[in-house]
Amino acid sequence: MTIPGSMADVSPQWVEECVGRGKLKNINLVPMGEGVGMMSSMSIIELTWENSKDLPSSLVLKLAAENDTNRAVSQQFNLYLKEVSYYKDLAPRTTARSPRVYASEIDEEHNFFLLMEDVSSYRMGSQVEGATVEECELCVDFLVNLHASFWNQLSDVEWLPTMSGSDNATNMALGCEAGWPQLQEIFGEFVPDTIDAQREQYLAAIPNLQAQLDQYPKTLIHGDFRMDNMLFGQEPGHDALLVVDFQGPLKGNGIHDVAYLLSHSAKTEVRREHERDLIERYANGLINAGIKDYSVEKAWNDYRIGVLYSWTVAVVIAGTLDPANERGFAWMSKMVERNGTAINDLNCLALL
């Protein structure tokens, strides 16, 4: 199937081929808002059919990023290949909801497309505003479902990188080291002095942190579980939560997703007041889902490691990507500020 080089290459005939049925009278592409799809280019395609019975009135198209800096990072980490592969191979194995994909393709040059269900009637979370406790609870429940679906069941998925000892792990460590100067240059006012003072110790510890988050039991890690990828149901018939952007999935300890959510996206006051309850909710949810080998105590200890390792991700994002616009800068600065505060609150530097 042909991969459009840009949104301008999309035609009614191409959409018809992807959907597999129906005859279109017209299409209209509406670019999605500022700050949406930072690593990709995204548009809503409004569809006018000759006979619209049982056919979607709109779809979402996702292509490779137009921003050269962000596209290069996407290629380095195989983000597009992993997302296409997730929807083809893994989405059918879980009831944790993500948008339905009508068609997808990727080539050796990392050109790709995903033609997906339009879920723009859902409310997108805001990493700038930060997650409430109610939103955190919905997200933790989603992770219980996602992680339980793949608990120690990924040995056959060869394209999925491991948290440690993989090219992805090496790139994260190198990206953290290379990105720290830009982090300081652009976001320095949000970086705690306590963390910057231990830069070299932190960089040296990254492989060990990765290894600690790559021990049995292993499951599917979403890898970018932040508020801008959460879509909250608003209407009758909506799911309570849909999650998008599966460009960074990994094999490893699922607590990484929980730590990433709470230290990057939760309002700081919400995290401080409710994080122990939320960790208990996660561990007990797994037990109720039939997972018997992950205690609350183990989850809490791993959570602190996850919060500390989340700084690696924060540095790679803020230190190597182009914020592109004011909203990009706003959510990145909140991510850095919240993660640094959480590391200090939980005395995570003592784990180095």
Rank of each mutant, 00 (worst) to 15 (best):
L213C: 04
S295R: 09
W300G: 01
H264F: 13
Y303R: 05
D245V: 00
A266G: 04
R271V: 07
L241E: 05
N284A: 10
A197T: 11
K298I: 09
G252E: 03
H238C: 11
P249K: 00
R226V: 12
Y282R: 08
N229P: 03
Y294A: 13
F246M: 08
V307L: 02
N284G: 11
Y282F: 13
Y294C: 04
Y260M: 13
F246W: 12
D245Y: 04
A205T: 07
D228M: 06
F232C: 03
Y309S: 01
H222Y: 01
A289S: 15
Q198H: 03
K251V: 09
E235C: 10
D239C: 04
A204E: 10
A299D: 04
F232E: 01
T268I: 14
P249Y: 02
L278V: 07
I206V: 13
L308N: 01
L250A: 08
D224M: 01
Y260F: 15
A259D: 10
K267S: 12
I305K: 09
L241A: 01
M227Y: 02
A266L: 05
E200W: 08
I291E: 11
N208Y: 07
D239I: 00
G237C: 12
R281K: 13
I255Y: 11
D302Y: 07
S295L: 14
R271C: 06
Q201C: 06
E297A: 15
G237T: 10
L231M: 14
D257A: 08
R199N: 09
L242K: 11
W311D: 03
H222V: 07
A204K: 14
I206M: 06
K267W: 10
D293I: 13
K298T: 15
Q198W: 06
R304K: 14
A211W: 07
G306K: 00
P249L: 00
R199E: 02
W300H: 10
A211C: 03
N253W: 03
A205M: 02
K292F: 13
H274L: 05
D257H: 03
V258G: 10
H264Y: 10
K292W: 11
Q198F: 04
L261Q: 06
E235Y: 12
D245E: 04
Y309G: 00
N284M: 14
S263P: 05
A266C: 00
A259N: 07
P217N: 09
